[in-house]
Nucleic acid binder design. Sequence first.
DNA 1: GTTTGATTGAAACGAACGTTTGAAACAATT
DNA 2: AATTGTTTCAAACGTTCGTTTCAATCAAAC
Lengths: 214, 214
Amino acid sequence: MVDTKTAILDAAEHLFSSKGFDATSLRDINAIAQVNLAAVNYHFGSKDGLIQSVLERRIVPLNIERLRLLDQCEARLGNDALPLNEILEALIAPAVRLSRDPKAGGEDFMRLLGRLFIEPNPKVQTILEALFGETGRRFIKALKQSLPNLPEVELFWRVNFATGAMAHTLCDTSRLEFISGGVCDPNDAEGIIHRLVAFIAAGMREPVSATHTL
Amino acid sequence: MVDTKTAILDAAEHLFSSKGFDATSLRDINAIAQVNLAAVNYHFGSKDGLIQSVLERRIVPLNIERLRLLDQCEARLGNDALPLNEILEALIAPAVRLSRDPKAGGEDFMRLLGRLFIEPNPKVQTILEALFGETGRRFIKALKQSLPNLPEVELFWRVNFATGAMAHTLCDTSRLEFISGGVCDPNDAEGIIHRLVAFIAAGMREPVSATHTL
DNA sequence: GTTTGATTGAAACGAACGTTTGAAACAATT
DNA sequence: AATTGTTTCAAACGTTCGTTTCAATCAAAC
């Protein structure tokens, strides 16, 4: 065992992403990590401490990469309204791409990220606000500048819809493949990025007063 | 106590929707329902039986209403391609409207429905496939006819995005209100329906080859 | 009024949970 | 070689879980 802490984090990430936080026991984790039952409490203090470490390990670098892309975009095009698709890609692409890197958790991380936003565990929600709050506000500000004619209330609703589309896509790796009869490949990261950005951008740009059916 | 079974179903629905399935104990449920600990196993056989009953009570009428609206739409316009927005409204409006009816679970039902699609519990997933499978295939067929130029693989991806947007919106009743600083009203059912249908319809109609940024 | 079947009640069951303990094993320094 | 601090180990802690038991209670039929 080269590194007990890493083995625990990997096993916990795998189980949290597939079974959920509450349904995963420390005994499940330690059985996969091949470590002693007391190891989690020794290295992370408690199960809550473990959850915190599992999330931090992935989300902190993810948000750094997201903000780096956004900064890079602003440096190239100035501080005014950025192209909508570039903002969305800075938000979405790092999440999907990191999910293809086996060293960054692979598809376990993908599902973990998707699951977070609907996870009812209050501890998880507290951790989430601390980890995503600042990054989220940066992106909302950029979206506001990119869509100056969209009323703020509509922007918030659409960001919420976009979050749901993204989270569900990240979380669900099997149902779509099943429903589509194998037509859709959940491992096609670049395809997912392209399709998600296009879908969300179209919804974001839709004129607000389109009540009537086509 | 007029009806023990109903009291248990109501309490279970409330707790499942707010805490999740695995994190809700029978003792929590029975404390709220003010019934004996053995009541759940007597009336529903087991905790799994209770979950099944909780979901069936709401989802069966929901899907009947969805299919009724779809049938009504076909009867009015013929069996060919239906307007996209009407299909989406037949899918979305019953879910959001039922969530405003206190006799149908109110916002508890709203969150319950949203939570289902990411719920990792395999028992729940089995129940879901049985409850939603047929209705889902009917709507996918209608969407195919409505968007004849959209390749099947793209349609499946977009249905997946749409499902995520809808599920997340139904599930999240507080975060949007918090993030938006109270600007967005999560209780405005008709507003949610209108916005969700418009957002999803725009994403559905987007031409497929729009790779380049605007 | 008695009997029958359905429901409720208090108590306990074994199993699994997160956590703690204290000794053993290990690593690195003196 | 002895010592120190860190990590691992097997075992147990008390609690909570879903479930079961069996007597008490109720409602209705005879």
